[in-house]
């Protein structure tokens, strides 16, 4: 961590008065015996859209899994504070209930479990946390039909098993539908654009933009800048070797697009030498 400390550019601030929703400090994590995150610092405030970019293996997907509490990852150092609360103490379901949402890169298929039932149970768990009344089957169906328009999904998807037999684009739209129902304050979208054709990408991006409000923060994880053409980020972070190497505005994404990631390696090498 100390190796990089002087080169680190701390997150700039657009609205200093906005609430800090998520604060990540010096986060280290490993999977089995392999250290993946080596000191990540990141602050998300309400109303902000952040993009984390980086090559495969840079640790960006690990960051999303750690934030959601995946049991395969062990946090070895650092803190994550969500609205003043230690996020790392919470179980995965508790994180979801308090408003942290992870849109998966590869949503799993769960044969036999009805999508509608799954969405209802999840939505009611979140509502209970917010002190809202539980929705019965009918009220929920009304809600879900309304939210389906966000992702332009066919209601027939509700009658199928969770993600079972869904195409790549349908799975991603189902993720955004879940986000629309759970109304998170912090949404982390892991490679939401991967495997999408242009139309699906447009729908998903429009959904994400619609759900990003002045009260929420969004963290887009991607390695193409394609998604960022549809959703304009306030900040772009470049991740490499398990930490955030550089932070900038929208232009950083364009620079990456133009120059590729090779300069990242050079910078990393020079840092390690220095």
């Amino acid at each position: 961590m100390s190796l990089f400390s002087d080169s680190f550019v701390s997150t700039p601030v657009i609205r200093p008065d906005a609430d800090v929703l998520l604060e990540i400090r010096g986060l280290h994590a490993r999977v089995e015996d392999k250290a993946i995150l080596k000191g990540v610092d990141l602050t998300l405030r309400a109303g902000e859209i952040h993009a984390v970019m980086g090559r495969n293996g840079s640790g960006k997907s690990t960051l999303s899994k750690v934030l959601a509490g995946h049991p395969a990852y062990t946090v070895t150092a650092g803190t994550v504070t969500y609205r003043g609360q230690n996020l790392l103490e919470l179980s995965p379901e508790q994180r979801a209930r308090v408003g942290v949402f992870l849109g998966f890169q590869y949503p799993v298929e769960i044969p036999g479990v009805s999508n509608l039932e799954f969405l209802r149970v999840a939505t009611n768990a979140r509502r209970a946390e917010l002190g809202q009344e539980e929705l019965d089957t009918f009220a929920f169906e009304d809600l879900v039909r309304e939210r389906l328009t966000v992702v332009q999904m066919d209601p027939a998807f509700l009658d199928r098993s969770v993600n079972e037999g869904f195409s790549g684009g349908e799975k991603k739209r189902n993720e955004i539908l879940q986000m629309a129902l759970l109304e998170p304050l912090v949404a982390i979208l892991d490679e939401t654009d991967s495997g999408l054709d242009i139309d699906a990408l447009r729908i998903v991006a429009a959904g994400v933009s619609q759900l990003a409000t002045a009260d929420t923060a969004t963290l887009l994880i991607t390695h193409y800048q394609r998604l960022l053409e549809a959703i304009t980020p306030d900040f772009v972070h470049v991740m490499a070797a398990g930490r955030i190497l550089r932070t900038g505005g929208r232009e950083l994404a364009l620079e990456l697009e133009e120059r590729g990631y090779d300069w990242v390696d050079q910078e990393l090498a020079s840092l390690e030498l220095g």
């Binding site: 959601a68 509490g69 995946h70 049991p71 395969a72 179980s91 995965p92 379901e93 508790q94 994180r95 979801a96 209930r97 949402f101 992870l102 998966f104 949503p107 799993v108 769960i110 044969p111 036999g112 479990v113 009805s114 039932e117 799954f118 149970v121 999840a122 768990a125 979140r126 946390e129 098993s161 969770v162 879940q178 759970l182």
Partner: peptide
């Protein structure tokens, strides 16, 4: 699978309920 359980959990569904949902889905 761990991934299926984690997926359900990450949507706010408690572990026991996630297991129970999967078992009753299976049955």
């Amino acid at each position: 699978s761990e991934d299926q359980l984690f997926y359900l959990q990450s949507r706010g569904i408690a572990f026991e309920e996630a297991v129970s949902m999967m078992v009753s889905g299976f049955c």
